[in-house]
Simulated assay, not measured.
Amino acid sequence: MPLLSRSHRAALVSSVALATTLTLAACGSGGTSGGGGSGGDAAGDTVQVLASFYPLQFVAERVGGDRVEVSNLTPPAAEPHDLELSPAQARTVGTADLVVYQSGFQAAVDEAVEGRQPAHVVDASEAAGLEEHPGESGTGASTTGTEDAHDDHADDGHDHSSHGGLDPHFWLDPTRLVPVAEQVAAELTAIDPDGADEYAANLAELTADLTALDTEYSEGLASCASPYLVTSHEAFGYLAERYGLEQIGITGIDPEAEPSPARLREVADVIRDHGITTIFFETLTSPKVTQTLAQDVGVQAAVLDPLEGLSDTGSDYLDVMRNNLEALRTGLTCA
């Protein structure tokens, strides 16, 4: 073989390095970060699952286990209500093996599902048993300050139309995640029959964890000085309904809505009349209005996570729900 000149050897080394870099990049392009799944499978047999926001990602990961690769369309710490999809993300809706989403919650995802027609879909809205106003007017004591709540919310831009008139935040009642998980297991089994036993076992384990969490909530909130759950927006109705509380939202379903002065006065009256000591703000929206109201009426403000997204990657749904339970027990003065 003829000897290569120094310049030819340098060119050859550069070409090899570039080829190696491209190969490694191609192998690493199927990650699970928020941009969506690939629809294909570099490993050859991993089921590609696309979830539209965090609680559905959690269910898909727990049920699918090692046999699935789950991508989340909503980036970490982002507000899922406002999600917009890039053309590339919209394409993944059509190429993923399974799409797990909630119709009526994220308009961009609804449009992508309708336009791309994925072969396998789980719509959480159908499984979760959604309601219009869960957790309200449960004790009769709300006649001071909540009977006109929805009229006031309408003035604030409160609008159920994007959710079909239904409260979408079902996942804050852990028992409502179980039928969603059952549908995910059924679809994964249809896609990957060889994994049927594993999916069934994972489903059983997740169901046991959710049942245990439900028991912790039932026992932890069984005896509280106040049943009134005052929140920055009405995201906790299913939780309130499940555990005998009554939600009083400063604003309605829309977390970006601004409360009217009349609504703020109304909620302040409820707080004073019922001796409420804590009102709750959220993790993904500004706490300013809630903290100002708390200061004005002389009560505490505390964080309650609606779990629409996951800010702390070191925790999961179960961890955040248990943190919420402790915040509730403190804020509502539970024995």
Rank of each mutant, 00 (worst) to 15 (best):
V270H: 09
P118S: 14
E126A: 15
D167T: 05
A335M: 00
S142T: 11
A141M: 13
A17F: 10
L22A: 14
A141D: 14
Q117A: 15
G145I: 10
E114C: 00
S315P: 00
T278G: 03
N72F: 02
A108Y: 01
E216V: 10
L325S: 03
R322A: 09
L3F: 09
G314W: 03
A141F: 07
R67Y: 01
S226V: 06
A17Q: 06
D312V: 09
A51R: 08
T215C: 01
S226C: 07
P80D: 11
V93W: 07
L221Q: 08
T46W: 00
H153I: 13
F58Y: 15
Q89H: 04
G195H: 07
D316K: 07
D148Q: 12
N72A: 01
Q183A: 10
A212I: 08
E69F: 03
R322I: 10
R176P: 01
L177E: 12
G195W: 05
E79W: 03
E69T: 02
G237E: 02
S86V: 11
F58C: 00
L325E: 06
S5E: 11
T211M: 05
E147S: 14
F58K: 01
L210W: 06
D316V: 05
E205L: 09
G244V: 06
S315N: 07
A141T: 12
D194E: 15
L18E: 08
T330H: 07
L332N: 07
Q89A: 12
T20D: 01
Q291K: 15
E136H: 07
A128M: 14
G138R: 14
L229D: 02
P261W: 11
V267C: 01
I191E: 03
L188R: 05
L12M: 06
G44T: 05
T278V: 07
